[in-house]
Amino acid sequence: MSDDLLATAAAAEPAEGLRAVRALHTLADRLEALHVERARQAGWSWQQIAECLGVSRQAVHQRYGKRFG
């Protein structure tokens, strides 16, 4: 492998990894929204949802309160 190719591979690796992380964040956000909405429809409190997600009640409410209040 020439030095040029090595340099390209090294540059591409973080970009590929970061792209995967970004895609994973987006996927996780969508799954979270779907499940929070369903939990609210099933009568779950914000506190119960927050405990399952491992975050504060305020964090969940701030994020979804308007949408799924």
């Binding site: 590929e16 792209r19 995967a20 970004r22 895609a23 994973l24 987006t26 996927l27 956000d29 969508r30």
Partner: peptide, 20 residues
């Protein structure tokens, strides 16, 4: 964020978007 999910990037870390 509301754009298409990046199936290729997910596949690269072993996640099959079609299965999900």
């Amino acid at each position: 964020p509301d754009g298409p999910l990046d199936a290729d990037a997910l596949a690269a870390i072993g996640i099959d978007l079609d299965a999900v």
